[in-house]
Design a protein around this nucleic acid. Structure first.
Lengths: 212, 212
DNA sequence: AGACTTACTGACAATTTTGTCAATACCAAC
DNA sequence: GTTGGTATTGACAAAATTGTCAGTAAGTCT
């Protein structure tokens, strides 16, 4: 009449992955308040001491969780930068997508939990983006022209904060602006923003976009 | 030998205000995790049951807190809209400022706690902004020209998500983009963005801003 | 097969946090 | 001054949450 005390024995990597995925989902579902060991353990189908076994304590879990999120964002941004398609439209799409799927929310949560915390790995990315953009602009500009480096940095900065803001409240803001819902409007806005930036970067052959 | 059991008796309004202010400060200081009744009570200089007396339970406090935050944002945006100075620079400043002082963080937190929660009062503001902008553009445009309403809505949308993103991670992003720290860069970026938008709204007499 | 490592779990402990309640103090009205 | 209403509090209760620990089971190595 013994119950079956069968246990699943995973490799540490598998177990950590299982727990981290469950934690990310818990945060995405019920916000930072959902980051409870019991809840995560239940979602992952393990006992809660297992989390402590693999991460030491709650803070350790949060540390790994955030480090991984930052790394993921960083990877996505690097991938976006290295992509052969350099058109503003495609790049913007990739950057906006990088913040999607809960990553934007997670970062926003980190911002509130630890306002002065460095974003670690992604620190260099924006600078690199700006440098690349600036170099490309200089190469494309007529010989005599000079372009302020700050201008390129501001372009990247605008894209970054817009992508973050869009990930957090984009859908609601769009609705509140009276725009039709659905991914179609999303696409159109990105295209519009890309055109705006393209017009700024190459003011000569642009200017008529957005006006009909 | 009796201690002095002096109590301060406030009006319910005063007490609520005191508690709400302490709660906002607690959130701003230690993030959503700082929203503990004890902590708030200590900061407000009252006992924690008083919070429950005035707000029913923790959820009640959160509800009032968020409702007030949304109302405050809404008020600030309305004030920004009604201000006589209609230059893009001044308007942008006011919108960006509206999200400052923890309001952006608070909204971001709400986004994670309650992803589908409506922004309530501010629902109409963006639409109004867009309508006003559109009307002004139509009035200023040459008789034959037509301007897509969507274009005006996108302008407002961009400002909104940029202001939110800036409030949450603006300082860190700027640092990570290699821009010098301090409020000076902040101002310069806003001016840059205002110029970008102004150039888009009136493409004729603009275009040379940002390039030197 | 036996020994060894360790992933895993149930039970327990300690602390924290929300919530309840009766008692008290402050104030206003009569 | 007395009375009544209620804002306020200390003490207590209940639940949740993190963390500990000894024991168990699964897999590996000899």
């Amino acid at each position: 009449m013994e119950g079956s005390p069968r246990r699943i024995r995973r490799t540490p990597e598998e177990a950590r992955r299982l727990i981290l995925d469950a934690a990310r989902e818990a945060i995405a579902r019920s916000g930072p308040e959902g980051l409870r060991l019991h809840e995560i353990a239940a979602a992952a189908g393990v006992s809660h001491p297992l989390i402590l076994h693999h991460f030491g304590n709650r803070a350790g879990l949060v540390r790994v969780l955030t480090r991984e999120a930052v790394a993921e964002l960083s990877d996505k941004l690097v991938a976006a930068m290295r992509e052969p398609d350099h058109s503003p439209e495609a790049q913007l799409d990739r950057v906006f997508d990088a913040f999607r799927n809960g990553l934007g929310q997670l970062l926003a949560w980190l911002a509130t939990v630890d306002p002065d915390g460095d974003l670690g790995g992604s620190t260099m990315i924006q600078r690199e983006f700006a440098e690349r953009l600036h170099a490309r602009r200089l190469a494309a500009a007529p010989p005599g022209a000079t372009i302020a480096r700050e201008d390129s940095q501001f372009v990247i900065h605008l894209i970054a904060i817009a992508a973050l803001g869009d990930a957090i409240y984009g859908a609601q803001f769009r609705r509140s602006a009276g725009l039709p819902e659905g991914p179609e409007t999303d696409k159109r806005f990105r295209a519009w923003l890309a055109a705006l930036i393209r017009a700024h970067l190459a003011p000569s052959q642009a200017g008529s976009i957005g006006r009909i």
